[in-house]
């Protein structure tokens, strides 16, 4: 079969709602795009552990301690599921780590912002996980089987993350003036970066069309962003917090909220590695990996020794 025919047949399968499995024929670009997107997604989970992990030793209560620890741990699990999905496409986890550690691979820029107060932890759960869920629910129906299955598992597990975050925020807002101020301050800092999580505007997002064809995307960046804003505005009202955007208002005609201009220069600055904590986050990942090298080597050596012992036993 000619390559064009294969590609046509491949696209027909996706259009018919069929899933693509790792051993199926796929266009090289499909493979590459998926390796890139899934590994970026995995990296975001792993790097995402760091800003919240900062606070596990400083949680104000024991109940918050176990909730936060479990959540950050889930992110390690989600990274693991996603790396596994990418591995089915013929790239190893170690290679993906190398790409992350050398700065070649990207991860969600939101994790380059600092967690300065306890309210940041609640806000991340509320906004960042809230934004992630919108994206991830869409991805449970993506065309690549292992990715879709990983997303189903992740969505199931993540359902508590956003609730946990919002509960933290509500507690602050129902607390003392200092606490409420802490919550408002966190919202002020995280609001705009959260909106940027959906990626550049549609007209500046050249891959969108292809992604929609492959069902990696079912909605565009701007559609998802709008959906997030509409939902979150209501939640902020419940908490009694003010979204830091003077231009934010309900547009009856559109049936959506209008909102102010996003500072895209900041977005690109952080993506290109010059956000507040890009270097620190990468260093933390590199350190964990480098410090773990002798441990991983030991485990390999030990299991080889054990296997040799088994062989000897059999030989006798």
């Amino acid at each position: 079969m000619k390559i064009e025919d294969l590609e046509k047949k491949f696209q027909d399968r996706i259009d018919a709602g069929e899933k693509i499995e790792p051993k199926d024929w796929m266009p090289e670009k499909y493979r590459k795009t998926h390796i890139r997107q899934i590994s970026q997604h995995a990296h975001s989970e792993i790097v995402g552990m760091l800003p919240e992990g900062n606070w596990v030793t400083r949680t104000p209560t024991l109940r918050r301690k176990v909730g936060l620890l479990a959540k950050v741990q889930d992110e390690a699990g989600h990274g693991l599921y996603l790396y596994s999905a990418a591995e089915t496409l013929g790239i190893s986890r170690d290679e993906m780590f190398r790409q992350l550690h050398t700065g070649k691979a990207k991860y969600s820029s939101i994790f380059n912002y600092p967690t300065m107060t306890w309210a940041d932890i609640g806000t991340i759960g509320w906004l960042v996980d809230g934004a992630a869920i919108i994206n991830q629910v869409m991805l449970t129906r993506t065309s690549f089987g292992p990715y879709a299955r990983a997303m189903v598992r992740i969505c199931k597990e993540e359902s508590f993350h956003q609730r946990q975050g919002f509960e933290m925020i509500l507690t602050l807002c129902n607390g003392t003036a200092i606490q409420k101020e802490m919550a408002q301050d966190a919202l002020n800092r995280w609001w705009w970066p959260s909106l940027m999580m959906f990626g550049p505007r549609d007209e500046e997002s050249p891959n969108t069309e292809q992604s929609v064809k492959w069902k990696i995307k079912r909605k565009t960046n701007d559609e998802l962003r709008q959906q997030f804003i509409d939902i979150t505005v209501e939640q902020a009202k419940v908490a009694g917090l003010t979204i830091p955007d003077p231009d934010l208002k309900w547009n009856e005609e559109r049936g959506h909220h209008d909102f102010g201009a996003i500072d895209w220069s900041e977005f690109w600055r952080v993506v290109k590695g010059n956000g507040p904590l890009n270097k620190e986050r990468l260093k933390a990942r590199n350190d964990a990996w480098d410090n773990g090298e002798w441990v991983r080597d030991a485990a390999m050596a030990h299991s080889e020794k054990q296997a040799q012992k088994e062989e000897l036993k059999k030989a006798v």
Partner: peptide
């Protein structure tokens, strides 16, 4: 808990 996010492998 200090190690959360800094282990030698994801599994550990």
């Amino acid at each position: 808990s200090e190690l959360c996010g800094h282990g030698p492998s994801l599994e550990t």
